[in-house]
């Protein structure tokens, strides 16, 4: 399906709301296996996105994603800034060619993997993206499947990011980036419904 500008705008609004509502929880998830800042960093970033979009209404999808990327890249201090920023930057580039949702997201995932160097199974946001994208393409994605993909990061040993310094001790915790990616995809489902 093609993603329309108003759907994408709605998507970002809903994502921002979810992040704001769950920022303390996300930072709590980040406490045992990270630096306890994921929720607050993302909330600061999404607030900057909102401000940027209010100041200058984007003309098209590419513009919307570019503004989103720049706000996240410049305002989020942790790893989530460059990772989510790169995802939206790649979607912005892709949107110049096509507004087909699956190819936009495929470009985003490739960008995240290149930027962070993570693969599936490393206990990162990539695990959720890898699980969700094929389901979305087949039209079978549900909130429950998103929850499942997030939950699946729990038993994994972290290979990337701050949690990787904990080795075995990173087991038994949901990855905070996986959780926020879960919010991103739930917001998307709602926006395109």
């Amino acid at each position: 399906m093609d993603l329309a500008l108003d759907q994408a705008t709605k998507w970002l609004e809903l994502f921002g709301d979810e992040i704001e509502k769950n920022k303390a929880y996300l930072s709590d998830l980040d406490t045992p296996i990270g630096d306890a800042d994921h929720g607050f960093n993302m909330a600061r970033g999404m607030e900057a996105v909102e401000t940027s979009l209010a100041q200058k209404a984007p003309a098209d999808l590419a513009g919307l994603f570019k503004q989103t990327a720049m706000a996240l890249i410049t305002k989020v201090g942790g790893a989530s800034g460059p990772l989510y920023g790169t995802a939206f930057l790649e979607m912005s580039k892709q949107a110049a060619q096509t507004s087909e949702l699956n190819s936009l997201l495929a470009a985003a995932l490739a960008g995240i993997k290149k930027r962070g160097g993570a693969a599936a199974g490393d206990k990162t946001m990539v695990d959720v993206w890898e699980a969700v994208l094929p389901e979305l393409a087949q039209g079978t994605l549900t909130d429950a499947k998103i929850d499942e993909a997030v939950e699946a990061t729990k038993p994994l040993i972290a290979k990337k990011g701050r949690a990787s310094y904990l080795g075995e001790r990173s087991k038994g915790h949901i990855d905070p980036g996986a959780m926020s990616s879960g919010y991103l995809f739930k917001a998307l489902l709602k926006a395109v419904a």
Binding site: A79, G81, P82, G85, R115, G116
Partner: peptide, 11 residues
């Protein structure tokens, strides 16, 4: 120093 510094350096 640590990972996210590398990502921002690359950007």
């Amino acid at each position: 120093d640590l990972g996210s510094a590398k990502m921002n350096l690359e950007l």
